[in-house]
Amino acid sequence: MAQALVIGAGPAGLMAAEVLARAGAKVTLAEAKPTAARKFLMAGKSGLNITKDEPLELFLNAYAPEWVRPYVADFGPDAVSDFARGLGVDLFTGSTGRVFPVEMKASPMLRAWLARLAGLGVVLQTRWRWVGLEADGVRFETPDGAQTLRPDATILALGGASWPRLGSDAAWVEMMAAKGVEIAPFRPANMGFVVDWSKHMTAHLGQPIKGAALYVPGQVSRGEFVISAKGIEGGGVYALSAPVRDGAALMLDLAPDLDVEAVAHRLGRTSNKDSLQNRLRKALRLDAVKLALANEWGRPLPNDPLALARKLKALPVRHAGPRPLAEAISSAGGITAAALTDGLELKALPGVFAAGEMLDWEAPTGGYLLTGCLATGRAAGRAAAARLFPEQMTD
């Protein structure tokens, strides 16, 4: 029986292991942590967003660079939803198109998946830390001492460089670079930004901002975000984090449902006897935290209604750059397309494939990240299976 090794038991590794096992390989799944899929479980604590129900073309536009899109097209939102249902997970689609388990948890899906893999003969080895890939085999440090495996095909699914305490510590980068694998530097993705707040903002820290819009040239985010002692974070920020990280100016619109003229008209109807704060409150129903942001990023606020309207719809979000990579939800960078074949096999290491966040791609939160990991795990698994069982992989 052909021997296959998958290193890393996150979603990409689990998917690759299943594809290989179904093809007939004897699969060992090696995980450095005591349990599988820790980042997956952590992400699911706030409600596991499996994928997003939207037209495939629009869905694919969320992925960059473009080279990763064909893998997602082969295993997109519908396929991911069907896969989850196949594990006994009931799903529902929220008002934004995001798809969630009815239970809103990751653990039931993971338990069902691990049970199915065990039924397929996949052997999960935990606390196995990969330490070397040499001519004599793949070496691990384990609770039982050093172990060396000699698989017929190996899939690496070790994650990127975010949330290192959960296993994605990028310790593999040095080993892969030494083997001649081209790796783009890791950068934070889906992260917050540092803001050095004025003292008057202290009373508002921890508050959510709803009903506003963040935007960069050509892209708008209406998602909620939070102001914290560290800065700004949350889904509304994450949706724009890539262009802002790369230098785009971030702006805040406190009245996104009104154009400039409508805002100016409402402001012009207020009494000049009122304080500016009261005029804003009466005309636009701005709450205390939005009023604080208007002062934080808009001072000095003009009295003229038109000038004030323009400022309220284009407040410059002054920040000091992204939060550290270790705090980011995901990472950009990793093994480049140039280092891979179309089957995600490493050109420098025939018989070794890579998947998931090890690869140089990024996408926003909202179901795109998990779908991308599952899709590339499946693609790597299919390519490895085709190498092991060429007569079976004809479709």
Rank of each mutant, 00 (worst) to 15 (best):
L133D: 08
G343C: 03
P316I: 13
L117A: 11
Y238H: 03
G377N: 05
R69L: 13
V131E: 01
P302K: 01
W361Q: 02
R318N: 07
K311Q: 10
G97M: 07
G367K: 02
K33H: 10
W128A: 11
G381L: 03
I155Q: 00
F193D: 03
L286E: 02
N190H: 04
E31P: 00
I183H: 03
E134T: 15
G218V: 15
A385G: 13
L240R: 03
M393A: 15
R22D: 03
M1I: 06
L250A: 08
S330P: 10
N278D: 07
C373V: 15
G47C: 11
G192Q: 05
D53Q: 09
W361R: 05
M201F: 12
V131D: 00
A115G: 08
G351S: 07
D246N: 10
K33Q: 10
L48E: 01
P316G: 09
R129L: 08
L370R: 01
G235D: 09
E141H: 12
L110T: 06
Q392F: 13
L254R: 01
L56A: 08
G334S: 08
G24S: 06
D90W: 02
A355F: 05
A79Y: 00
K39S: 04
M175G: 10
F83T: 05
R85G: 09
P322M: 04
L359P: 09
F100Q: 00
H319M: 10
L60T: 14
C373P: 11
L370D: 02
F389D: 05
R127Q: 15
I329D: 00
T51Q: 02
R129K: 15
S162F: 13
P217A: 15
L308W: 02
P364M: 10
R85I: 07
R285Q: 10
A262G: 11
P164V: 12
Y71D: 01
Q277Y: 03
W130L: 15
E66G: 04
R165T: 15
G8T: 09
V194A: 07
N190P: 00
T270V: 11
F193W: 10
A25G: 13
A212H: 02
A171W: 13
A292K: 02
G236Y: 12
V123W: 10
Q147L: 14
G180T: 09
T142S: 08
P364C: 09
V226I: 15
A249G: 09
D287H: 07
I232P: 14
L149W: 01
V102K: 07
R279E: 01
L56I: 11
F140E: 01
R281F: 04
F59R: 04
A328Y: 04
R299D: 07
A248H: 02
S46Q: 07
M109A: 15
D257K: 14
P151G: 01
K26L: 13
D246F: 03
A25R: 06
E362V: 12
W130Q: 04
N303K: 07
D144L: 14
R269P: 06
A383G: 14
A12P: 05
G97P: 04
A213N: 07
S46H: 08
L166F: 12
P101A: 07
P185L: 12
A161E: 02
G8D: 00
V317F: 12
G298N: 05
G235A: 11
